[in-house]
Nucleic acid binder design. Structure first.
Lengths: 338, 338
DNA sequence: CTGAAAGCGCTAACAT
DNA sequence: ATGTTAGCGCTTTCAG
C-alpha cells in the first residue's frame, strides 16, 4: 500500500522533457535564464511525473536546508502550561520565518536523552540554525552548538561561565523593575517588599537585582521572599513577608502568576489592595487584567523577542557578523493594584 | 566568529586513523566486524577532529533521516489553549519515539502557506514519516502525503471522501457516548438533551451520532444544541436547551469545557446538579475534577493515542504493511454530577 | 576483517 | 541559453 513507487529524479524529468539535468534544475529553482518554451516543457514533465526534489541531495551540495530549529528545553507539560511565554515566542519566530520562507521545526527537549538527540540533529546540519526559547540554569547545549559552528541565538541571557559568547535577545528586566519600584516610591510607599523568582533563571535573578539596586539607590531596606514563579509559591511567599514585617505597604512580585497568589493571601489577611498594600507584578499575562483588583505590571514584548531572535539568526545564517546581545525595552502598565 | 571552520569529513578521519573511509563508517555506525584496536584508533581520530557525520549525505544513501514529523494543523494560539489534547498526544508520541531513538520534529501549520511548506518538507523526504495531531474538516494534506508514498498516520479519523485510505488511530467516541447515555437512562433520567460539538470535526460528529443512536434505540426523542467546544458556547447552548424544554432532566455534553459552561448556566437558572439535571461531559480534562459538582465524564486515552499512532507509523516506516485503523476504548468516569 | 569503487540526487562551475 | 562535468559526504556491495 505504502510501497513508494520509484520516485522520479531530475534525470527522469530531464529525459522526458528532452533536456539536460542542469536545465531542469534551473527551472525547478526558478532561474530566469531558460527559454520560455523549454521552461514550459520541463514544467509539464515535472507535473506528469510528480517530481519532487530530494532535499537531502540538495542540502548536500548547497550546504543549506532552509529550515531552522526552535528548541524548547522543557517537558511537554511545562511548555503547555498556562503561561503564554512559549506561544508568544513561537508566534514571533513563525512570523519572521514565514517571511523568509524557512521551515520552522520545533523540538521539545526536556530530558537528557532528547538534549543529546537535538545536539546530534543540529550538529549533523539538519537545520541551518538553532534558537532556544528560554534557557535553563547553565545549560551547556547552546555553547556546544556555537562551538561546532552552528548559528545560535537564545531568548534570555544565558547563564554560566562564558567560555564562548552565545548571542541572545532578552528584555530589560532590570529597567522594568526599576520603573515598578520607582512608581511605588513616587506614590508614597515606604516599605516595599519583593517576591523574587527562582534564582537559577536569569529572569528570577535579574528581577531581584533590579529591585535591590533601586531600593539601595533610594536608601531603603529590602525585604525579600523567594518563590518559583507559580501561583502557590506566590501565596506562600506573601504570607512569609507579612510575618516578617506586618507594616509593609507595597510588594513588587517578579511574576503575575505569583502576584495572583499574593493577592489572595493579602485578601485572606484582611489587607486591602491597593489601600493597605500596593502590588505590582511582572509579565502582563492575560490574566492580569482579570484579577481583583486588576494588576499593575511590567509588560515585556515576548513576541517581539521571538521576532528579533529570528532576525538575528537569519542574519548569522546568511554569514553576517552580528552583535552579540539585544535587549528590548519593558514598560510599566498601570492598573488598580498600585 | 561563526565562520564554521572546515568540518572534518569521513575522509579526514580515515586519513588520520590510517584506515579507509569504509572502516570509519563501520565504526561510526557501530558495526561489530571491526578489530578492536582499529575501532580504538578510529574513535580517537573522531574525537580529536571533532567529527560529526553529515546527515544529509547519510540520508542521501540510506534513504532514511531517523526523524519523524508531528504536524499540528492549528495556530499557535489554539495549540496552546488550555485543552490538554496536544500535550497529551505529544507526550505519547515522544515516549515511543524516544524508545526508537528517532527525532521528533513538531510543525505548527495553521496557515495555508505553512501547509504548503510542510508538504514540501515531507515530500522532500526530510522526515521518514508524518503524524497529524487532529485533522480539520477535510484537510487534503494527509491524503496528499499518502499518495506521494510517505508513511502517514492521523490521530482522529479523517473526514472527506476517501480517494486514498489514510491510516488513523482514534478513540471510540460512539461507544463512550453510549455508556454515558445508558448511564443516564439507568439512573432514571427521562428527558436527555445533548450539547454537540462542531460538526466539521470528527469528534463533534461522532459524539452526536452516538447520542442519536442510543436515544433512538431506547425510543426517546432527542434534544440538541450545537456548540464549538468552548466554555462560552456550552453556556449558551444550555440556555437554549432550557428554553426549548424546561423539563429536561439530563444533558450529555460533548466536551468538558462546554459542560463547565453548562453547569454555570444551570446554576444561574436555579437548577440543582444532579438533583434536577444530571450532566455528563466528555474528555475527562483535569478541570473536570474541580467543577461544582465534579463532572461525570467520558475518559479517552489521549496519550495512548499518541503512542499507538507512533507505533503504527514506525511499523510503516520499517516497510511493514499495517492495518488501516485502530480504535481505542473510552470509559465512563462517575463523579457527582450524574 | 578491511579496502576499493560505485553511486545516492542534486547544484554549480565551466564550456559551448 | 543549454549541456557537460565534477563533486557534496556518506554507505554499501564486492573483492581480497
Amino acid at each position: 500500500m505504502t510501497t513508494a513507487r520509484e520516485r522520479p529524479t531530475l534525470e527522469a524529468v530531464a529525459r522526458r522533457a528532452g533536456v539536460s539535468r542542469a536545465t531542469v534544475s534551473r527551472v525547478v529553482n526558478g532561474s530566469t535564464t531558460v527559454a520560455e518554451p523549454i521552461q514550459e516543457a520541463v514544467r509539464r514533465a515535472v507535473q506528469e511525473l510528480g517530481y519532487v526534489p530530494n532535499l537531502a541531495a540538495r542540502s548536500l551540495v548547497t550546504q543549506r536546508t532552509d529550515s531552522i530549529a526552535l528548541v524548547l528545553p522543557e517537558t511537554a507539560t511545562r511548555v503547555f502550561s498556562d503561561d503564554q511565554f512559549f506561544p508568544g515566542i513561537i508566534r514571533g519566530v513563525s512570523q519572521e520565518l514565514e517571511a523568509a520562507d524557512k521551515q520552522l521545526v520545533l523540538m521539545i527537549a526536556g530530558s537528557a536523552a532528547s538534549h543529546a538527540r537535538v545536539e546530534r540533529y543540529a550538529t549533523g546540519r539538519h537545520v541551518d540554525g538553532v534558537m532556544f526559547a528560554s534557557v535553563h540554569g547553565a545549560d551547556p547545549l547552546p555553547a556546544t552548538l556555537v562551538r561546532s559552528g552552528i548559528p545560535v541565538v537564545c531568548s534570555g541571557r544565558p547563564m554560566g561561565q562564558v567560555t564562548v559568547p552565545v548571542p541572545y535577545v532578552d528584555v530589560d528586566h532590570i529597567g522594568g523593575v526599576a520603573k515598578a519600584v520607582r512608581h511605588l516610591l513616587e506614590t508614597g510607599r515606604r516599605r516595599i517588599a519583593t517576591i523574587a523568582g527562582p534564582q537559577d533563571m536569569i529572569a528570577g535573578i535579574d528581577r531581584l537585582a533590579g529591585y535591590r539596586d533601586e531600593l539601595r539607590d533610594s536608601g531603603r531596606r529590602s525585604l525579600i521572599a523567594v518563590g518559583d514563579f507559580t501561583r502557590e509559591s506566590g501565596g506562600l511567599a506573601m504570607r512569609q513577608l507579612l510575618d516578617d514585617d506586618p507594616d509593609l505597604d507595597a510588594v513588587f512580585v517578579a511574576s503575575d502568576l505569583m502576584a495572583h497568589g499574593a493577592l489572595r493571601t493579602l485578601r485572606e489577611a484582611g489587607r486591602r489592595v491597593p489601600e493597605d498594600v500596593a502590588v505590582v507584578g511582572f509579565d502582563d499575562i492575560e490574566m492580569a487584567r482579570y484579577t481583583d483588583p486588576p494588576l499593575t505590571t511590567v509588560r515585556q514584548p515576548i513576541q517581539e523577542m521571538g521576532r528579533e531572535m529570528t532576525r538575528q539568526l537569519l542574519r548569522m545564517a546568511a554569514g553576517e557578523d552580528i552583535g552579540h546581545a539585544v535587549v528590548l525595552p519593558t514598560e510599566l502598565v498601570l492598573r488598580e493594584s498600585a
